[in-house]
Nucleic acid binder design. Structure first.
Lengths: 241, 241
DNA sequence: CGAAACTAGACAACTAGACATATCCTGCCA
DNA sequence: TGGCAGGATATGTCTAGTTGTCTAGTTTCG
């Protein structure tokens, strides 16, 4: 029931609570697309901008996520208050590669850059295998990662990575059964437009940036990895868990 | 100065500069074929048309040439692209506790908060000594810190801290000659107005936030410290270098 | 009056899908 | 061996629809 008693509360607030109720009662479920702003405007008999004010409140409350050109979607986890739930999901920095779920965005071979070559201790123009993707926890993106491997030592690694979706398993196929983190550097960065899109943040939001080198038991670099964590959504813990 | 807070970059522009950087750094060399529009769309998480807008700019800039049915090929490198924006700030590397110079802002005693008391393993309303200041390197502020100590164990510590300006030296006067880091948690936060002022940043700039507990040789907590690093200005390094 | 709420319209940015057209590759056949 | 047909891919173009942002004007109420 959407009663138009516009006496007391602003229209946009009434619309917001009507939509909230729709979501709470399951008329729109997780991941569902809401009607377009124009349709909602017609349904409630108001201007589109009034609907937008209501939607903005839902976005602010974390109930809904909007994507320009696509629509407004009910957020997968309605109750996601970052405080309280302890994210102990990267037990330490070394585990930057092992996550409950990950999506590989690209993988392939490329000529190295001087910077990467220096880290991997290979020739400046040698080929590297790259591996770029998104880590998720509970279905929500928490980090973007980009790894580089010496292609000469690991031929056709990209394909193996796509197949196994695990760095550890992929390297094991080349006889690298154990590797450890040699150096890690941490800083904070602002998210650019594309990072924000993929991590479901706003441009300029703080990211925890990690850069590290993994070496095999002989001390030779096998991986150079960069990771951008959604700063507010993740906490890295060092030392004891 | 020139840019307003929270200016929005169009996605296609962000993608265009990401690709320009890839070319500038030699990830794609002259004559190389770029990934297909569909692959790039997947990589950046956008629609193909958005990628096309980015590619159109590269074509316009003369960096890339496209051939229908074949792909997009690199024709030249950007002439005036500021290289090294990626990761080129091996400024001062500091370990997680020691800094070249520091300025004490406040120091004193107060009643603990439940959160801090839990970390220090003291009674919820016990007194704590706090110690709040600014770390500098080369005369520039790099971090804000705020430390808490159990006041009962270290009476009049605040005065000692002001005098010695060194946590290690101050604790040594109480017989604590050695302490180690028990746990550290890291995340990224946006600077608020006061933090921005003290760190000479803009409000909303990314900060690297560190929270840690130091324990003595018996494992008893002696310090609970929080540090906010100026994210773009500082790199934390872990492990050997 | 002045602020908040709402309407109205226009344009930019992005998504979605369909279709045309050029190129590449592979297998078949002479 | 060489050539050709055809499928798979890739870019080019078009239409349509949706959200984001801006400016401007109107209404309502304290």
């Amino acid at each position: 029931m959407t009663d138009l008693a516009a006496r007391k509360t602003p229209l946009w607030q009434a619309i917001a609570s009507a939509l909230t109720e729709d979501i709470a009662e399951g008329r729109y479920r997780e991941g569902d697309k809401l009607p377009t702003e124009a349709q909602l405007a017609e349904r409630f008999g108001v201007n589109r901008h009034t609907v937008r004010a209501a939607l903005a409140q839902l976005v602010d409350a974390g109930l809904v996520r909007t994507r320009r050109g696509a629509g407004a979607f009910v957020t997968a986890r309605p109750t996601d208050y970052p405080i309280g739930r302890r994210v102990r999901f990267h037990r330490n920095l070394l585990a930057a590669g092992r996550t409950p779920d990950k999506r590989v965005l690209t993988a392939g071979e490329q000529v190295s850059t001087p910077y990467i070559a220096e880290r991997l201790r290979i020739a400046p123009d040698a080929a590297v295998c790259y591996y770029h993707g998104l880590s998720l926890a509970d279905g929500r993106p928490v980090a973007l990662f980009e790894s580089h491997f010496p292609a000469q030592r690991f031929p056709a690694l990209a394909e193996v990575l796509r197949r196994t979706a695990s760095v550890t398993a992929a390297l094991a196929e080349y006889g690298v059964t154990d590797y450890t983190r040699a150096a890690t550097r941490l800083s904070a960065r602002a998210a650019d437009a594309t990072q924000a899109l993929q991590l479901e943040l706003k441009e300029g939001d703080p990211l925890l940036f990690s850069e590290g080198i993994n070496v095999d038991s002989d001390g030779r670099p096998v991986e150079f990895g960069q990771t951008w964590f959604a700063g507010e959504r993740i906490t890295l813990t060092l030392g004891e868990d």
